[in-house]
């Protein structure tokens, strides 16, 4: 589904602040792969996501999504087939607009060909209500409320819905539960697993929770210095413990995993 072929990205080239964020990274994701990503500080995890989403263009290499070369496709055009969530619940929604209006915006991704002057119709509203009900947060009865009134967890659940309402070819989750309290984080994680498996979405998730990284999805990357140093799936993965992951990291890089927020267990 997603192919990254020898991609590299260097920030501030030729200055003292030069930083090779991703270097010569190649990876292939199968349709329906759910990859969890663990890495040290500055390993290039978010840069990898930015390269896929098109926040910037890569310096070299190509990005192929569903057979289409999107290396030089603009960010807003890619977003038609790429869903994305950040750690900050404020990033994914427009606070002064209502829940319904936020969903209508997210639904624009499916609306190629419809008139820009059309409005939210009754059928759209029914669809939104149905989808909101699936979150189990009672948001379906508050569709006219501004999103700014929702809690972080509710906003993040809404963002998840918005990112997946039009099924994306790939979903990028950048520590999307890290800013939530544990109970809410569990709930959003549960929703994520359900939606991803129901819609059979190809997904990459950055996390700093090592046991979550092993429990969720079917594949795990360890990243360091802009490279994937360990890529594991299948039976080998199912036998791994968090201690094994730490050892693999040391073997791959010759260093200990230094992420100041890493969680070894729940």
């Amino acid at each position: 589904m997603l192919d990254l072929i020898h991609i590299s990205k260097t920030f501030n080239p030729g200055t003292v602040n030069e930083k090779k964020a991703v270097s010569d990274l190649s990876v292939h994701l199968d349709d329906g792969d759910f990859v969890t990503i663990i890495g040290s500080n500055g390993a290039g995890k978010s840069t990898l996501f930015n390269a896929v989403a098109g926040t910037f263009y890569v310096d070299s290499g190509s990005v192929i999504l569903g057979g289409q070369d999107i290396t030089y496709l603009e960010e807003h055009k890619r977003s038609r087939v790429i869903g994305r969530m950040f750690q900050d619940p404020l990033k994914g929604t427009a606070p002064s607009m209502s829940i319904e209006e936020n969903l209508a915006l997210a639904y624009l991704r499916s609306s190629e060909g419809t008139s820009p002057f059309s409005r939210i119709g009754r059928r759209d509203k029914e669809l939104f209500r149905e989808k909101l009900a699936l979150l189990g947060m009672g948001l379906e009865d508050r569709m006219k409320n501004p999103v700014g009134l929702l809690s972080g967890g509710q906003r993040q659940a809404l963002t998840l819905l918005m990112a997946t309402m039009v099924t994306p070819k790939v979903l990028l989750l950048d520590e999307h539960t890290a800013a939530l309290d544990p109970a809410t984080a569990d709930k959003v994680m549960e929703l994520t697993r359900r939606i991803v498996s129901e819609s059979h979405i190809t997904c990459m998730m950055i996390t700093h929770n090592m046991s979550q990284a092993l429990e969720t999805g079917n594949r795990t990357f360890l990243m360091s210095d802009g490279r994937i140093v360990y890529d594991v799936k299948g039976e080998e993965r199912s036998r791994l413990t968090t201690q094994d992951l730490l050892r693999k990291f040391r073997e791959g890089t010759g260093r200990d995993l230094d992420n100041d927020r890493i969680l070894l267990s729940e």
Binding site: H76, R80, L90, K91, G92, T93, A94, S96, L105, L108
Partner: peptide, 11 residues
């Protein structure tokens, strides 16, 4: 309101 979200909505 949130320019990032506009980009994410393919606009």
């Amino acid at each position: 309101d949130n320019i990032d979200m506009v980009r994410a909505s393919s606009v």
